[in-house]
Simulated scan of single mutants.
Amino acid sequence: MFRRRGQGEEPKNDLELTDEETDAAVDDAVETGSDGGPWDAEDSFPELERIDFGAVQVPIGPSLEVQVNVEATEADAEGNPIGGRLVAITVVHGESGLQLQAFAAPKRSGIWDEVRRETGAEITEAGGQAEDAEGPFGTELRAMVPVQIPDEVKDQVPDEIREQGFAWQPVRFIGVDGPRWFLRGVVSGAAVEDEEQWQVLEDVFRNVVVLRGDQPMPPRELLELTLPEEAQEALAQQGDEDDGFNPFERGPEITEVR
């Protein structure tokens, strides 16, 4: 897992806040009129150890693994991906995952209500189920999504699921509209129903920092994600040692925001 020091001089190894940091967060919430994070890069936010991925800074801790999701943009003669761009960051905790994406948004209005309706309609049209529910970040979307069963595990699933050719996956879509940005989280795995695992991922989402930048961008355009400098150096060194090394492996499928 990549690790990078956050704003503070001494990095912290978990997501627990000190009493001083908690008081500061409360003061900031009063000043900004919000209930806390996710945070804009210009906010005064709690100092935690975070990985800097450019548009988003993701908090980390000892029980968390951070993965990058890459969309292939090039292919070799056999059709294998050899290049790509970062399109999402996934934080894994136990049997749960939180996928993070940040998008440009209009200056005076948010996009989460519209995106949530469109996402729910797409899931329903694909044969799944989706409904709004209230959560810690406001209205969220809770869904049951049909997913294909990989061939390598088909002999491990019950006969009735194997015969229908797909399984149901519960998913939670959470979203927060910030100043000229929108942050979406997609929760999968045990945390959808397990409160203990969800609390860890909720803390992660609440402590994400979004850097919108000043450049004009159309609404819903994905904010640029980049690898931390030390990760780029590690990949370059490993690539020099192994000509067959390919860091751009396709990640999990991502629901697009159009």
Score class of each variant (00 low, 15 high):
M1I: 07
F2Y: 06
R4F: 05
R5C: 01
E10H: 04
E10C: 02
D14A: 07
T18H: 12
D19H: 05
E21M: 15
T22W: 14
A24I: 03
A25T: 02
V26Q: 11
E31L: 14
S34T: 12
P38W: 00
W39Q: 04
D40Q: 07
F45V: 01
P46H: 03
L48D: 01
F53D: 04
G54R: 06
G54D: 02
V56M: 14
P59L: 06
V68E: 09
V68W: 05
N69H: 13
V70S: 06
V70G: 03
E71I: 06
T73W: 08
D76Y: 10
P81M: 06
I82W: 00
G83A: 12
V87Q: 14
T90H: 05
H93K: 00
G94E: 03
L98S: 14
Q99H: 08
Q99P: 05
F103T: 01
A105V: 00
R108K: 08
S109W: 04
W112R: 13
V115R: 11
G120Y: 09
A121N: 14
E122G: 09
A126Q: 13
A126T: 10
G128P: 02
G128A: 03
E131L: 04
D132S: 12
A133D: 09
A133M: 13
E134I: 11
P136N: 09
G138I: 03
G138F: 04
T139E: 15
R142Q: 13
P146V: 03
P146H: 03
Q148D: 11
I149C: 01
E152Q: 11
D155C: 00
I161G: 04
Q164K: 15
G165M: 05
A167F: 02
P170T: 08
R172D: 12
I174Y: 08
V176E: 05
G178A: 03
P179G: 05
R180I: 01
R180G: 02
R180S: 11
R180E: 09
L183A: 00
R184Y: 02
G185K: 11
V187W: 07
V187H: 07
S188G: 10
S188T: 15
D194F: 08
D194M: 09
E195T: 13
W198T: 08
Q199E: 15
V200I: 15
V200T: 15
D203W: 05
D203L: 14
F205T: 12
V208I: 13
V208A: 08
V209A: 06
L211R: 14
L211F: 07
L211S: 14
R212N: 01
P218H: 00
P219Y: 02
R220Q: 08
R220F: 01
E221W: 02
L225E: 02
L225H: 03
E230K: 13
A236K: 01
A236Q: 02
Q237L: 15
G239W: 05
D240P: 00
F245H: 09
P247S: 03
E249P: 04
P252R: 14
E253K: 10
E256L: 07
V257A: 04
